[in-house]
Design a protein around this nucleic acid. Structure first.
Length: 324
DNA sequence: TACTAGGAACGAA
DNA sequence: TTCGTTCCTAGTA
């Protein structure tokens, strides 16, 4: 028993690991939290059981949007169990209450459970969103070669892993899942471990879905559930405006390429026109998609009254006629 | 140079 | 028929 990184399948640079069964090790992974590199493996989940979940790419969740998570857990780890020997110096107020450390432990444990629930919910929601955006099943085992390529291209774009997908041609999801981390590294020396980690997030999410009844999943994932995911798959062809809205509704993941300027009025700005177009191209299996073509499609919405230019027209700024 | 606007032809569903 | 893609010309910042 030690840091989570000593557990099977978990590397020393797992950025975020939550398990209320390893209290001391929490501080260990927090030490690693600034290292943005994903873990080398998440496959330990089935052995660890539900309470332990790795969420490597959610370092942003903890570091940016939920800095309180870190604050809450940044307290120094209790060094050694408090001694009860008579040699102890006269009791200071904080030392007289032996049970308080137990209580503190319980409180910490509860806090961690809450954090865990929140993070797991975010994982499920993000996987769900990506499923909808890519029109693929949540479980990598169900992917065919086209789905794998979509996922690879998407991950490549979102996590800036140039050319990573080209190293994994003609593989089904089952093939991908049967590969070890070493196999991944063999395919891509530079990004194999990163892709492996991202795949493990999806596999872990699929494992969570199997382990938890739909009600639990629903509460964990807030307004989304795995049954929703499955009902959406295979989904109807997504419209461009829906795709853009999905991106806008996940600012944690996509704000660097598209974001709201005024959500109430439905005004949004495309920050990275090339990236949004590439993502749309991945979604539609149109490798030649670019902003020129995508913007033409957006302009088609002018006549239909779905999207328009705002009253004060600005470059790359559009407005949903009927705000979300 | 990148973006905007819109016409026209075309294919997939 | 609808929707989106592709190609095009022309204009703007």
């Amino acid at each position: 028993m030690g840091s989570p990184c000593e557990l099977p399948g978990c590397s020393a640079y797992s950025p975020l690991y939550i398990s209320h069964t390893h209290t001391d090790s929490r501080m260990a992974w927090l030490d690693e939290a600034e290292d943005i590199k994903p873990p080398r493996s998440l496959l330990g989940l089935p052995e660890l059981g539900w309470p332990g979940v790795y969420v490597p790419c959610y370092n942003r969740l903890a570091l940016e949007e939920n800095s309180w998570v870190l604050r809450m857990t940044e307290a120094p780890a209790p060094a050694a169990p408090p001694s009860r020997t008579l040699e102890m110096s006269p009791a200071k107020p904080s030392q007289t209450q032996v049970p308080s450390s137990e209580m503190q432990g319980q409180v910490e444990e509860r806090c961690l459970e809450q954090v865990q629930t929140m993070v797991v919910g975010e994982v499920l929601k993000d996987v769900n969103t990506a499923c909808k955006l890519l029109n693929i099943a949540p479980d990598p085992l169900d992917w065919n070669c086209v789905h794998v390529q979509k996922w690879l291209l998407w991950t490549e774009q979102m996590h800036r892993l140039p050319q990573a997908s080209t190293m994994f041609q003609e593989l089904s999801g089952r093939d991908l899942c049967s590969m070890t981390e070493a196999d991944f590294r063999q395919h891509s020396t530079q990004f194999g471990d990163t892709l492996y980690a991202h795949l493990d997030i999806w596999r872990s999410a699929a494992a969570m879905k199997e382990r938890c009844p739909p009600e639990d999943s629903k509460s964990a994932a807030d307004d989304l559930s795995w049954s929703d995911v499955m009902c959406n798959y295979p989904s109807q062809p997504i419209h461009l405006w829906q795709f853009l809205r999905e991106l806008l509704l996940k600012p944690t993941d996509y704000s660097r390429c598209i974001r709201w300027l005024n959500k109430d009025k439905g005004i949004f700005k495309i920050e990275d026109s090339a990236l949004v177009a590439r993502l749309w191209g991945i979604r539609k299996n149109r490798p030649a998609m670019n902003y020129d073509k995508m913007s033409r499609s957006i302009r088609q919405y002018y006549k239909k009254g779905i999207i328009r230019k705002p009253d004060i027209s600005r470059r790359l700024v559009y407005q949903f006629v009927n705000p979300v």
